[in-house]
Design a protein around this nucleic acid. Structure first.
Lengths: 248, 248
DNA sequence: ACCTGAACACCGTTCAAGT
DNA sequence: ACCTGAACACCGTTCAAGT
């Protein structure tokens, strides 16, 4: 029979190598651009053969999907940390948006993976296993948002409305956060929105959306810009630690 | 000297062929998927040689960018038509969102081109000329939004705020519209948001955003769901005509 | 001036041979 | 059981030759 430690050791080594490969892929994206990411290039930078790389990823697009998964895992951790910071539900929700914005600003390459991995060309060639994992992680993120919204309804600081309110609200929060971040990078690249600060516009967008929802206290009653600055001072260092843990 | 008609004829023929090639590319994307779009496949379906195709597009990614440009041109036309429909500025702005949503729903493949063309892998390999044209068209779209917002401020139905209000508001509208549409397609693909209607969630998002901005009349004062249905009845046919003009 | 398609280089993917 | 890298197929891109 095999030794009891052997399989777990193998698994650990395998995971470690996969993390190294993803690290290298990230390096290529960051320093040589997305067009430079090829299996050849990845093989050249790694210390394994092409066949071994295909033992981890079924296609080049699967590599991008794996990077998007590690982004989602990191976002989940950020959310878990940030949601504890606020003193009421609207502050907590704002803290989640702060996480998303911070992630996009401090790790643009990883955010662009998240963006690119949602593209049909990538979705079509990613492995079913990774797509399932991605779905699970996105559901986890959504669940954190929905829980917060539900809590706000229960505490009567968020007026109830008809229909599938909670999932719609969560969708719209996600859409606004994703859209704000996704527009920014290519916009800058093209020369659009040159005078806009991502952080400012995200904060403003969330304020408007939450005010529209009637989520109390409204931005006329509390200065959320000040809370955002508070997040910068109190939460940012811990979040950056999470983002950079086991990165580079 | 050359005949006076010759150059314009040449140009027209050239444009016509380019339109045909884009039409074929669209056909591949729609019926065979994004992964199936290759210069070989495009050549096979066309009646010209590969070299001629490279005479129009500097790369495969340039083809996607060209399709995103024709999407933007169509959106511009839709906006021009729709903005005239409303009886006050908030209705006009809602009509613009209606256009975006309708475009995403009725031409998902073209919307996905818009989405994919914002991806770094595509941006890096598109021709500078097309990127410049794209920038121009996006600025045109933005200008239409900003004009509407400015008008609302002048008519005192949109409370003025500090700083670069107008461009921020336009950015957020775009981010919400883009995000709502962009999340939907891959979400459906993954199995996320299965119970959500794109149209419903877009309308709700815009209502919340505009209410948050204080854009009068608020959604508590006017039933915008009814106006949305009105757009379905009165505006949709004309818009679909614009969308499908010179398409398949 | 423009079109052609063979040619080339590179890249994605596989798999027989090796350990 | 896993790794290797040669081999293959396909794809993106170019360009000498042709009209």
């Amino acid at each position: 029979m095999t030794q009891p430690d052997n399989p777990s050791l193998r698994t650990r080594q395998r995971q470690q190598r996969e993390a190294q490969l993803l690290q290298l892929a990230r390096h290529i994206l960051q320093h040589e651009g997305f067009a430079a990411l090829s299996m050849d290039r990845l093989t050249a930078l790694s210390d394994v053969s092409k066949g071994t790389i295909y033992n981890h990823f079924c296609s080049k697009e699967d590599v991008l999907t794996a990077l998007s998964i590690s982004s989602l895992q990191r976002l989940n951790l950020l959310f878990q940390r940030a949601v504890q910071h606020g003193t009421h539900s609207r502050e907590c929700a704002l803290a989640l948006h702060y996480c998303y914005c911070l992630f996009g600003e401090s790790e643009p390459a990883l955010f662009l993976c998240l963006f690119s991995a949602a593209t049909p060309a990538v979705l079509e060639k990613a492995s079913p296993e990774r797509l399932a994992l991605r779905l699970q992680l996105e559901q986890q993120l959504l669940a954190q948002c929905e829980q917060l919204i539900q809590q706000a309804c229960l505490h009567l600081v968020l007026p109830p409305a008809a229909g599938t309110l909670v999932s719609h609200y969560a969708y719209l929060n996600w859409a606004l956060a994703f859209g704000s971040n996704a527009l920014f990078a290519p916009g800058q690249h093209l020369g659009l929105f040159r005078q806009i600060s991502l952080s400012d516009v995200c904060l403003q967008g969330v304020n408007l959306l939450f005010d529209g929802m009637g989520w109390q206290p409204l931005s006329t009653q509390q200065d959320y810009q000040q809370y955002w600055r508070q997040l910068d001072l109190q939460l940012k260092p811990g979040l950056l630690e999470i983002i950079h843990k086991e990165l580079s």
